[in-house]
Design a protein around this nucleic acid. Structure first.
Length: 130
RNA sequence: GGUGCAAGUCGUCUUGCCGCUCCGAUUUAUCGGGGAGGAAAGUCCGGGCAACAAAGAGCGCCAUACUUCCUAACGGGAAGGGCUUUGAUUGGUGACGGUCAAAGUACAGCUAGUGCCACAGAAAACAAACCACCUUUGGAAAUGGCCAAGACUUGUCUUGUGCACCUACCAGAGGAAAGGGUGAAAAGGUGGGGUAAGAGCCCACCGCCUCCGCAGUAAUGGGGAGGGCAGGGCAAACCUUAUGGGUUGAAAGAUCAAAUAGACCUCGGGCAAAGAGCUGCUCGUUCGAUUUCUUUUCUUCGGAAAGGAAUUCCGAGGUGGGUAGAUCGAUGGAGUCUUGGUGUGAACCAAGAUCGAGAUAAAUGGCAAGAGCAAUUGCUGCAUUCGAUUCGUUCGAAGAGAGUAUUGCAACAGAACCCGGCUUACAGACUUGCACUUUUU
RNA sequence: GCCGACGUAGCUCAGGGGUAGAGUACUUCCUUGGUAAGGAAGGGGUCACGGGUUCAAUUCCCGUCGUUGGCU
């Protein structure tokens, strides 16, 4: 497994982002809100992910950059915990202050371990409805 | 040496592993190279660039405002001038003036107009009224005053059908514009003369105004002559004058353009002769052609015949608009550095060298090691100092610097089209200047 | 990225050069057996911050900070 995060694995298309936030499910795990969506017709493409830090929570641009960079690193190093394809993911940082990489990485691991469970629950709901 | 202020410069470095982004090579996965700031910030000015019809004019609106210069331009900068404040010193009775230094200065025009100036104060802007002042006319005598007489305690009291003089008081006429406690500000100031009282009424000085030379590119400076003096302050009040600005901003704008739907064009095909009406559709039924345009011929001018085109469905291809998206705009420029020259300076000129981020749901990072720096605390306790002492020493305390351990790498802050400024933020280090202070010589 | 508006008592807002006000909230008293309502009295302000103009600034001018709205 490569510890890389090229542009094809980052979520940048406006349409996909709209789809994620309008249709996707979410859960909280401090200091994140995680939004996810199993895209239709994306079974063959890699997971795409985006990171968001609110201007309301972190006032300075330097602080927002600081956190986003560390989030990307944490995801990059631990993304092997996820199934490799078909997911749209959004990490919204809801913490109030700067956090170091040492604090953020364990949280990210927790999230990535928890995500498959949430995913299967969600899929189950879909099936029962249909 | 320390502290403070001001100005300026810098504002961590190296290596390894794993990543991000751009460029170039081979080649499709690797390799090589580049990758945040002095403010990238605030968005306060100016310019480039782009679109808007023309980009011109007028009105409006906005901005600027001592002079000269720099500049692509500016509300920026440089130099100079004036003014204000403070300090030192000096001249004068005084109003105030001279010299030096520092700091500040949005510094055109209230003798174009309009407006405002609370409270207090007689009055806040045409100078008038009021109080007080002076002259004069008339009245008046309780209390003052004066006069007369008397008394004695000889400087006081008493008395008066007292009032000519002085004067309080009342009324009238005139003079004068100096004084009037206030206020931020009071109608030029100070000193003297003068007068019934006064007044630039007169004189000297200070200030002011007008005119004329001189010096300076100019702001302005300095000199002379004249004028008794008009003109309170506020334009970061409206406004006037001069100058500048067309508006909107890269989310400007340009190019390419998938899929789907619809528009137009071409070709092919379907059909009982195309098709039309009824119908949501199908079946069926009715009409057996119709409509429009055009050309030609005939005509009894009503039409008739012939030819072409259109109208329908299906399929294919194409065209243009344009969404997602992509590319350009967009990073070689009023560029940076060095040297030389010109200029008081901002800056300009010449020569040489050099290329230094280009992202777009938005790169420039993470982890580790080392160096360097800083901090505090602990430990070691050598130079040195102090105290005690059994004085060849020993003990205790302080301890610059050094060693070691620990922690941190900072502050302010992240390019978003690009430049020139301004403003604001900034741990720490260094340099220069000034002020204060301490020590030594 | 670009362009605006606002900041005044605990809260919601007036005031646009001359001692800062309203409603509500708060405190005390009256009223009531007690509470609410009502009545009376009172306290409470760095007018966001820093400069400047002016005799005088919440008001005018400049800068800073914060809040908030619009533009795809």
């Amino acid at each position: 497994m490569k510890y890389s995060l090229p542009k094809s694995e980052r979520l940048h298309a406006e349409k996909s982002i709209k789809e994620l936030f309008e249709k996707g499910s979410s859960f909280f795990l401090y200091p994140f809100k995680i939004v996810f969506w199993v895209g239709e017709g994306l079974e063959d493409t890699a997971n795409q992910v985006l990171f968001s830090v609110s201007k309301k929570k972190i006032k300075k641009a330097t602080g927002r950059n600081y956190i986003k960079r560390r989030l990307k690193e944490a995801y990059r190093l631990n993304k092997a915990l996820l199934p490799p394809t078909g997911l749209l993911l959004g990490f919204v940082f809801v913490g109030e202050a700067k956090m170091s990489f040492g604090e953020l990485e364990p949280k990210m691991k927790l999230v990535l371990q928890k995500l498959p469970n949430e995913l299967s629950k969600n899929l189950g709901k879909h099936d029962s409805k249909n």
